[in-house]
Each structure stands twice: as C-alpha cells, then as structure tokens.
Amino acid sequence: MTMLDDFLVRAGLAGIGTALTAAPLGCFVVWRRMAYFGDATAHAALLGVAMSLALQGPIMLGVLCAALLMALMVQTLSGRGLAEDTLLGVAAHSALAVGLVAVSFLSGVRVDLMAYLFGDILAVSKTDLAVIWGGAAVVIGLMLWRWHRLLTATLNPDLAQASGISFRTEQLVITIALAITVAVAIKAVGALLIGALLVIPPAAARPLARTPEVMALLTALIGSVAAIAGLGAAFQFDTPTGPTIVCVAAGIFTITTLVGRFGRQTG
C-alpha cells in the first residue's frame, strides 16, 4: 500500500471516486431539473459537519444524516403552497446560514471552515478514501439496479405508474443516493461546490450523447478528467483544489457545448 502513502495519489483516487459517484446521479439531477434540490441538500452538509463536531462523531456520517433529513424535508414540503424554487431557495440558504452559525458556536474546537466549504482533497486519509469508494459503490450499485425504473419515472410519473413503477419509491432512491453523494463529495469539493460537481459534468456530456447510458458514461469520464486535471492544476499553480476542479469542469462544458453547436450546424 505504499502507493496510497502518497497524498497526491490519495487525492487523485478521491477525486475519481467522487466523480464516479456524482456521474449517474448528476445525470438524473439534470434530467429531472433538480439542480436546486441538489444545492439545498449539499448546503445542509455544513449543518452535518457542525453536528458531527459537537457530538465528536465521524464527519461523513453527520453530513449523510443532515443531507438526508434536508432532502426528505424539502420533498415533503414541496407542492404544499410555496413555489418549488422559492422553497428550495429558502432551504438551501437557510441550511448554509444555520450551518455557519452552528459551527461558530463550537468555540472549543479549531475548525477549518474553508475545508468544509470548498473541500480539502489533499488532506484525504486512507479512511476517507475507503468511505468515498464505499459510498461510490453503493450509489453506482443503486443506480444500476434501478436504472430502467428511474429512467421511466423520470420521463413521466403516470407512465411509470401504469408500468407498475412507483414514482415515490424511485424519488426516494434518488434522494438517498443524493445524500450519500453529498457525504462522499464534501471532502473533495466542499459543501458549496457539490452542486457544481453534480450539474456541470452531465451538462458537458449532454451535447455528445444520443442515449442516457452514453451520457452517464461520458459524465463519469468528464468528471474524472476534471478531478485529475484540476488536482494537477491546483498543485501546479497553488490554487484551492475544489474550485480548480470545478473550473476545469466548466472549461470542458464550454468546449463540448461549442462542439455540439458547431457539429449541429455543419452536420
């Protein structure tokens, strides 16, 4: 295991693991127009960090619980009066603010807030790595198992129901997978940029794909490339890693979008 002793190797593996976890789920976030839902869930992560620090439990477990609670709460409240985007805006920003305030109360502990907001992929431990890849395995397994049902439910709830697929069950699957993804991703990109990692790679893959499966695979590829290239660039230019990874992903998005436009005009 000497290779894993190199922090750059660990960081690279963490980045790839995070990108692979986010890929299939990110596709569903884009297809189902859940970008704000992803943000709200991700911002709740900070509250989970505060809870974990207060109770001295494992950070990722706290984040998982907070993200899951937030996702379930938003889902329960949606469709009961407030417009969806307003509700999600309230939830996302409140979660972030409450999390920041909660962390500030923990005067006893020295907290590197930046690490939780923007990620600290260079400080990934072997244990973190195990949790990240464990989470990746669970999320990818869940997606593979339910793939057809999830796709059908994404197209139309009634269409799914007529085929004997429960829309609510599939929505719950997405919610649980999202919470796990947030817990996995907080180390790599931090609470503020998880939403970016969910949305940008699939958006970048879209112009190049003709089927949902190809889009998911391309998303995984683009996410991984962004993670590795971002890591390299951050190391080279001494920039913060999480934001650099997102910058690379945004760059790829710009290129594929232009290629898609150009390709459509000529072909």
């Binding site: 884009v30 297809w31 127009r33 057809h148 049902r149 796709l151 059908t152 994404t154 197209l155 139309n156 269409l159 799914a160 085929s163 697929i165 879209r206 794909a209 003709r210 089927t211 949902p212 190809v214 889009m215």
Partner: peptide
C-alpha cells in the same frame, strides 16, 4: 410527455423503458 432535450433518447431506447 415533456421532452426538453436534456435527456438524450432515441425512439428505440424509449420503447425499451422499462422493459
């Protein structure tokens, strides 16, 4: 059926959902 172009889907692939 709202198809907004975010989900790439050929007719054949659509026909195979969910079976």
């Amino acid at each position: 059926l709202h198809m907004d172009g975010l989900l790439p889907l050929t007719v054949a692939r659509f026909l195979c959902l969910p079976h």
